[in-house]
């Protein structure tokens, strides 16, 4: 086995990177992939609580890198999927505890044992971003259909492409409201694609179940049936190399509400 390292990034904060990382990890693991999700946001640990694993953390990635534990002890097993692991970040304020070299070495050590290594990058374009980008084979840039997020995504895509290492970069459009796009009150998938000229690997609709799933610590991809859960599962299949066409979005109109979601 030789894992693909996927770094999830965005530039702007609050667009749904951590939710995306958690859900894609779950969706891939439920499809039989061996997955580890690494929280790359030193000092602002959040992947653990989003995944509902916060009370299981004993050691984190920095403990391992600094020799305080074995790698196996830092890998938190998520029993809700066959082979899903979390590597938490440290709550230290010392951001230099990780750097591009250490993160690359850590991923290289994990590669032989996994199919996918998902790295959840912090917001911003500083050291934390550089650290999480270093090991990436491919990047997923999470964008909201909103001007500041799209602009920051462009900046991040430019930074990714400026590196020597060749990487595939795809967009995930998150929190799209088909109804608002229909009213021409929100940037459409086509608008964003045109402005950023980057391929889109998936569109996750605005979905109320995301907040309650985060409240409970159960990512929607673990068996949820809502629109977002379906979108994550489709992105996971595309990441595995399946050809899954992008579905036209339903605007959630009267008929759909009447008959409920499938």
């Amino acid at each position: 086995m030789q894992a693909t390292v996927i770094t999830i990034t965005s530039g702007k904060g609050g667009v749904g990177k951590t939710t995306t990382a958690a859900n894609l990890g779950c969706a891939l693991a439920l499809r039989g992939q061996k997955v580890v999700i690494i929280d790359g946001d030193i000092g602002l640990r959040n992947l653990d609580i989003v995944m509902g694993l916060e009370n299981r953390i004993v050691y984190d990635a920095v403990d391992y890198v600094e020799g305080r534990c074995k790698l196996k002890q830092a890998l938190i097993r998520d029993k809700r999927a066959p082979e899903l692991y979390l590597l938490a970040t440290a709550q230290t304020r010392d951001k230099t505890a990780m750097n591009p070299e250490k993160m690359s070495a850590l991923c290289d050590e994990l590669r032989p044992d996994f199919d996918f290594i998902i790295v959840d990058s912090p917001a911003g374009i500083e050291q934390g971003f550089e650290t999480c980008l270093a090991p990436a084979d491919r990047c997923l840039v999470v964008t909201n259909p909103e001007v500041s997020s799209v602009r920051d995504s462009d900046r991040v895509i430019g930074l990714i492409e400026s590196k020597e290492k060749d990487r595939t970069t795809h967009l995930i459009i998150n929190r799209l409201s088909a109804a608002r796009v229909k009213k021409q009150d929100m940037l459409s998938v086509e608008d964003i694609q045109e402005v950023l000229s980057t391929a889109i690997i998936g569109v996750v609709p605005e979905d109320e179940s995301i907040l309650s799933s985060t409240n409970k610590g159960v990512p929607v991809a673990l068996g949820g049936k809502g629109a977002a859960a379906v979108a994550y599962s489709e992105i996971a299949r595309r990441l595995m190399g399946e050809d899954v066409p992008l579905q036209p979005l339903q605007s959630g109109g009267f008929l759909q509400r009447l008959f409920g979601r499938s």
């Binding site: 462009d154 009150d185 929100m186 940037l187």
Partner: peptide, 19 residues
């Protein structure tokens, strides 16, 4: 003019300068 169209043209403008 719908706000999406406005968003798109404003984005195109700033991105040309950003890039």
């Amino acid at each position: 003019r719908k706000s999406a169209a406005e968003a798109k043209s404003r984005l195109k403008f700033v991105l040309i300068h950003d890039r």
